[in-house]
Design a binder for these strands. Structure first.
Length: 944
DNA sequence: GCGCTGATAAACAAGC
DNA sequence: TGCTTGTTTATCAGCG
């Protein structure tokens, strides 16, 4: 639902406003002292044309006037339009709303929590009042006659305009037409007009600001002690404003009136009962990272990025989170507010050509300035202020917080839903609500709790219809990591956080909360941090989690290592079996003509299931041809090596060949490709195959030479060779067109090396290559070449043979911030990210399937893999289990003994593998470098 | 079939 | 009294 915020040009009706009445609806920020009066009217308009008052603020005895209660509730005045405010017979401004007001606006916006105020002032009541008013106006329609009279003395006005309203109602003029006055008599003196008004307000606010600090989104939530319902989509200030308004009103009432006002307010006979209003089944909460206080409305920054700009009425082509009106002085995308994770603060980036004023300092286009609490911003003629909740909370912290927090979430799609979703919790300290005159609305003091709204499929966004594939423990870990403070998170906050992180739980039926509690209690990853009220504040036992993750990592490594070792061993055996004949008459690999079907069996085995017996002959032939080609190309690539001994070259070739085969094979597996992938690749895309070979050679070179030589061949040249090779089919002889520059000093191996010829690192002329040296690859020592846990799924990758200067190992999921918000990614962040790291960018991901790859590979050669695996047999099961759960970030641990046992085993085993694993981690990271250096040749194989 | 893990549900108690 | 919170137990399913 597209929402549009419109700043309505404020009229001057407030210029001669009379003393404030009991209740005011204001557009100003709740933070602003009630004595401060903000002017201007504003409206937020939906695409549908619905509009709602942006904000209402209750001062002392707030009272929202409804159509019915106009006579009885003169406190609230709603002004219709500039210069023509709508007032009732009592001269109070009234709120005008379109008939087609869609409560869905509310439903999506209401994130309100009366937690902090509940004891003193039930924000829900306030919310209800406001919404009720809106609804009443909407449903019943406020007669125009109510809006006819304009009383300049009205202290407060909210002007609502439709999206197609008159231009005059639009925002260009931000002059403060709307005022808020406190009952006590903050009058017109505080009523400002035009720009100075805002400035004055801001100045006051700045003065009142005790301190500035940069809050972070997570902090905000905590600070608010609210459940973490941050809406992901567009921000619709209107509802938040209302809620915020109400909440703030309560706060102000509490803080400034010793909390008596709240009760007064609630008891106020004339006030419309909030029961009238469809209530959410939970107490609402405003969740926002920050807030933009305009003169006439408040914009809640509920995303980490918000666009501020101009959007014409009919132009929805571009996204504008904060519509500053049609003024041409404001660019469509004039500025953006975003959270800079690097600096840990919100920043304002000026996009519009006209720049903006930040704290009265002009900021030109293209500049980015940090946003601190109460930073003044002016775009065009519209000033506003950036407010961080933390400060707000600090300021409002005078009011005691009620530890009893009931999370709330309002999901109202439409008025019908509103009616269905009435669930209200009345704080013990609040008075029963006065029965509402509206027949359609419940008037019970405490309406029976209605079952949670059951969403129909259509009501649930597509992306939120499926349950996240993440365990509760992982979910909780993510949630707590993201939102918790040192004090921990209350259960309700955790609920809210989960809803925020995984909106599925906003829509699904209840019951998951029980699982959450179950997990919190049962899983040792979670601990009670501190007591708050009757409940605990939960936190993470990082030590336990770390240890657990470490164990899992080890297990994963072990599993992969074992799988790898098994595969290598099998290959070794096969290789030996088939290499014997080829070695007899072939001492020089250059002159080697007969293919060494070292991988033939492997390939055949891989594809055996897909190969009919009748095709064996062809398969063998293909494999033979393929292997021949690979060998030839490898020989070519390394023919003119320099400074590398035969053994080294042999080792390189061996590893390169193995890596290539495995890469291709694995990629084919992952893609479900049947047949002989190598052959297919060779036939269809030899360039690609050669690039893979080149990358493998380079990786193997770097590995074998321990980084001394990082690039032996140039992939581009390789591709060219491959092209030639393709043209010169059948491949019966090595392609040696490659410029042979054995004597040329080797260029510095660097990522940017882009020689179009094969780069040779040494000057020594190439020596004969002994094919038998390929067997080196299958030496048991190779078994130690296990994949990093991060790349667990890749049994054999080019990366694993690279020994380039390591780059920082990808952060494991323990960081907790890696989750993207999507449920699945959170849980599998560690492995999956690492996988992708080690693989290609194209996502073909020969090894991207995580444990699945490893397991599949392992299964191929499981039969005789143990001997070389160096893995304690006892761990087998644990590894398997771990592999199975590798996708999750953290798992519930029911059996500590089991984990500890596994740990002990791992500790013992770790001794022989740790260093290797660390190295492999680096290698895997390095593969990306190599891939990039190789001009896109990466370890991933794209078979198409 | 067994063991482990995770999810789900229910019962129950304590606190507000 | 009703609700929330926390604990415990039981059951079931998936997987190896």
């Amino acid at each position: 639902m597209d929402r549009e915020m419109t700043i309505v040009e404020s009229g001057n009706h407030l210029g001669a406003s009379s003393p404030a009445t009991d209740m005011q609806i204001t557009m100003n920020s709740p933070l602003i002292n009630e004595h401060e009066i903000k002017g201007t009217t504003e409206s937020i308009t939906e695409s549908s044309g619905n509009e709602v008052p942006m904000e209402a603020k209750q001062a002392n005895s707030p009272h929202i006037e409804t159509g019915e209660g106009l006579s009885k509730s003169p406190d609230i005045s709603i002004e219709k339009e500039i210069g023509n405010p709508i007032t009732d017979e009592n001269g109070n401004l009234k709120l005008e709303l379109p008939d087609n007001l869609d409560n869905a606006d509310f439903s999506k916006l209401l994130e309100f929590d009366a937690k902090n105020d509940e004891a003193l002032f039930n924000s829900n009541d306030l919310l209800s009042q406001t919404m009720n008013t809106v609804n009443e106006i909407n449903i019943d329609g406020i007669p125009d006659d109510h809006n006819e009279e304009v009383t300049p003395k009205d202290s407060t006005s909210i002007e609502a305009v439709t999206s197609h309203g008159d231009e005059k109602e639009k925002t260009q003029d931000t002059s403060g037409a709307m005022k808020v006055e406190e009952m006590e008599g903050f009058e017109e003196s505080s009523i400002k007009t035009d720009q100075p008004t805002a400035d004055a307000i801001y100045a006051q606010k700045n003065e009142s600001s005790a301190e500035e600090n940069d809050g972070t989104p997570p902090t905000i939530i905590i600070e608010k002690d609210n459940p973490l319902h941050t809406r992901n989509n567009s921000i619709t200030p209107i509802m938040f404003q209302q809620h915020e308004l109400l909440a703030q009103a309560s706060q102000h009432s509490v803080t400034e009136n010793n909390s008596t006002d709240a009760e007064t307010f609630e008891r106020k006979p004339s006030e419309p009962s909030n029961e009238n209003l469809p209530l959410p089944n939970e107490q609402p909460t405003i969740f926002a990272y920050a807030r933009l206080d305009f003169q006439s409305f408040t914009f809640y920054v509920q995303t980490l990025h918000a666009i501020i700009g101009r959007r014409s009425e009919n132009d929805f082509s571009h996204k504008v989170d904060v519509n500053l009106g049609p003024s041409k002085s404001i660019s469509r995308r004039h500025a953006q507010i975003f959270y800079n994770f690097g600096t840990g603060r919100f920043e304002l980036s000026i996009i519009g050509k006209n720049g903006a004023f930040v704290d009265d300092i002009f900021v030109e286009k293209g500049n980015t300035v940090p946003l601190r609490n109460r930073t003044k911003i002016q775009i065009g003629q519209i000033p506003f202020q950036f407010i961080l909740p933390e400060q707000e909370r600090n300021e409002d912290s005078k009011s005691p917080e009620n530890p009893d927090i009931t999370e709330s979430e309002i999901k109202l799609k439409d008025p019908k839903k509103n009616e269905l979703k009435s669930k209200k919790k009345v704080s013990t300290g609040t008075k029963p609500k006065k029965p509402q005159a509206k027949p359609a609305v419940k008037k019970d003091k405490k309406p029976p709790k209605l079952p949670k709204k059951v969403y129909t499929l259509e009501e649930i966004p597509l992306e939120y219809r499926t349950k996240p594939t993440i365990s509760y423990s992982a979910m909780l870990t993510t949630c707590i990591r993201k939102y918790s403070t040192a004090k921990g998170m209350s259960l309700s906050e955790i609920y809210a956080g989960i809803r925020e992180l995984f909106p599925y739980y906003k829509y699904c039926a209840d019951g998951w909360q029980s699982s959450v509690r179950h997990n919190l209690s049962l899983n040792k990853s979670f601990r009670k941090v501190s007591k708050e009220g009757k409940g605990w504040l939960w936190g993470l036992d990082e030590e336990y989690i770390t240890e657990r993750e470490r164990q899992k990592k080890k297990q994963s490594e072990m599993a992969i290592a074992k799988a790898h070792a098994a595969q290598l061993k099998l290959e070794q055996q096969q290789h030996r079996q088939q290499q014997v004949p080829s070695q007899k008459g072939k001492k020089d690999i250059v002159s080697q003509k007969s293919p060494v079907p070292a991988r033939k069996q492997n390939i055949s085995q891989t594809l055996a299931a897909n190969r009919a017996a009748s095709n064996k002959k062809n398969t063998a032939s293909d494999n033979q041809r393929t292997m021949k080609y690979l060998q030839e190309q490898l020989v070519i690539l390394t023919r003119d090596r320099k400074g590398l001994s035969k053994q080294v070259i042999a080792a390189i070739l061996t590893q390169a060949l193995a890596m290539t085969i495995n890469q291709v094979t694995q990629a084919a597996k992952n893609k479900g490709i049947t047949g002989n992938p190598l052959t297919a690749l060779m036939d269809k895309n030899p360039q690609h195959l050669n690039l893979i070979l080149a990358a493998a050679v380079n990786a193997a070179t770097a590995k074998v030479t321990k980084g001394e030589v990082k690039q032996l061949v140039n992939p581009e040249t390789t591709a060219a060779l491959a092209a030639k090779a393709q043209n010169s089919k059948p491949i019966t002889q090595p392609i040696v067109q490659t410029p042979n520059v054995p004597e040329r000093p080797a260029p510095q191996p660097s990522a940017s090396a882009s020689s179009h010829s094969i780069n040779y690192m040494h000057d020594k002329p190439p020596g004969p290559f002994d094919p038998s040296s390929l067997s080196r690859f299958f030496q048991p020592r190779q078994n130690a070449r296990v994949a990093s846990p991060a790349t667990a799924p890749v049994p054999v990758t080019i990366a694993q043979s690279i020994d380039l200067p390591p780059k920082p190992t990808p952060t494991q999921n323990s960081g907790g911030e890696s989750e993207s918000g999507s449920s699945s990614s959170t849980a599998s962040s560690s492995e999956s990210e690492s996988d992708s790291d080690s693989c290609s960018d194209d996502g073909s991901g020969s090894g991207s399937d995580g444990s699945g790859d490893g397991s599949s590979t392992s299964s191929e050669s499981e039969s005789d893999s143990d001997s070389g695996s160096e893995i304690d047999e006892k761990e087998d099961k644990g590894q398997s289990e771990n592999a199975r759960h590798n996708d999750t970030e953290d798992d519930v641990v029911h059996n500590n003994d089991g984990s500890s046992n596994g740990h002990d085993t791992l500790e013992t085993d770790e001794e022989g593998h740790d260093s290797k694993r660390r190295k492999i981690d680096e290698e895997i990271d390095s593969v990306n470098i190599v891939s990039e250096e190789n001009g896109g040749t990466d370890s991933n194989i794209n078979i198409s």
